[in-house]
Nucleic acid binder design. Structure first.
Lengths: 196, 196
DNA sequence: CACCCCATGTAATGAGTTACATGATTTT
DNA sequence: AAAATCATGTAACTCATTACATGGGGTG
């Protein structure tokens, strides 16, 4: 075994620090992007489905309202009732200080694993573009750096590996898949307008 | 809306026909690969961790025994008690006809989505290599075909897309990421010994 | 004597999916 | 008259993760 050579393993473990799902950050981002800074669940649901986010992840009403309640509980957003006549009352939400901070720091952090590019990074990029183009540019740059070092590391490991028996040959196969996926992500990052 | 142009969306929905998890098939495969055709849970756990499978997915004892019970219930494997003295009794498992069929047809079916290459396809490939090299070769060929048509389709969509507003531009970005990931998978498939 | 190996589990927890409940009002 | 829109949820279910229970035997 070379160093901590244990490759990242499939298992969707939330980070110990009670990490939130992508969908929650997506909601925070949509609230932040809303013109008045406040928005109710039903509108969120529509703008979610209508926006670019609806193209990469699905969020059913049940889960949406669940997340909103959870984030109110955790003091990331506030909720005030807006009475209506002839229509059901609305719960209007807006970001708290904590919510804004959580959103900003989540968006700013590049993803570590290549597999997270497809979902997590895309959501970060979408929100960053909508909220602050400068942040989008640094995000892309930071993500490039992560992917580059990851590619370098994988590349080393591929060179070091010798495929004696079947299982070692397979380990090599796995490494080369990861390397090729990582390089593809890197190339894609380079084509983004933020990389110009 | 062009045809059913709704892009595949993130949501790990099991297929309606009560689909099994990758780990279950991995277990079926390990039982099939065992020399005597039968093996008990504890040995399975060790050979799982020790084999190439342990490099791509994790399976804790709790889940392993859970799957074994489930598959006994569903008549994919049988279980007989092997008494021991000075040691706990063992539950020895072997494949039933249904189990062998389920395993073979799962292994033979290429994955549809590119994101499934990283886990599902790798497990299929590992098992196919261990059980029947010929099947491994056809699997790789079939998977190549799927990825090629997927790349072609994505390529079309990229050409058709025009990025007017922010959300359409994002849709284009998403498509190009998928295309690049799919092409990378395709290139990787070509480097496999089965493609020679 | 403390600890690890053998061997199989259970219990607690949490996260996500799907389908449905409600009840008024507007559109077809 | 039927259906869709508005607006917010609840309930039942599946699936996976983690940690722990058990209890005898061998090893440092």
């Amino acid at each position: 075994m070379t160093g901590d050579g244990t490759l990242a393993i499939e298992s969707v473990q939330r980070r110990q620090t009670s990490e939130r799902s992508v969908a929650e950050y997506a909601l925070l981002g949509l609230i932040a992007k809303s013109e008045s800074g406040e928005i109710h669940g039903y509108d969120l649901s529509r703008s979610f489905a209508g926006s670019g986010l609806g193209r990469i992840l699905r969020l059913e009403p049940g889960m949406l309202y669940h997340y909103l309640k959870k984030m109110v509980r955790d003091d990331l957003i506030t909720s005030t009732v807006e009475r209506q006549t002839g229509r059901p009352d609305r719960q209007v939400h807006s970001l708290t200080r904590d919510g804004r901070d959580a959103l900003q720091s989540w968006i700013s952090a590049p993803v570590r694993a290549t597999r997270e590019v497809r979902l997590d990074f895309l959501v970060k990029l979408y929100l960053a573009r909508g909220l602050d183009p400068v942040r989008a540019a640094t995000l892309v740059a930071d993500q490039r750096a992560v992917m580059r070092s990851r590619a370098a590391r994988l590349s080393e490991q591929v060179d070091d590996a010798q495929g004696d028996d079947l299982d070692n040959a397979f380990g090599d196969t796995v490494l080369r898949l990861r390397l090729s996926q990582t390089r593809a992500a890197l190339d894609w990052l380079d084509t983004l307008p933020e990389s110009r």
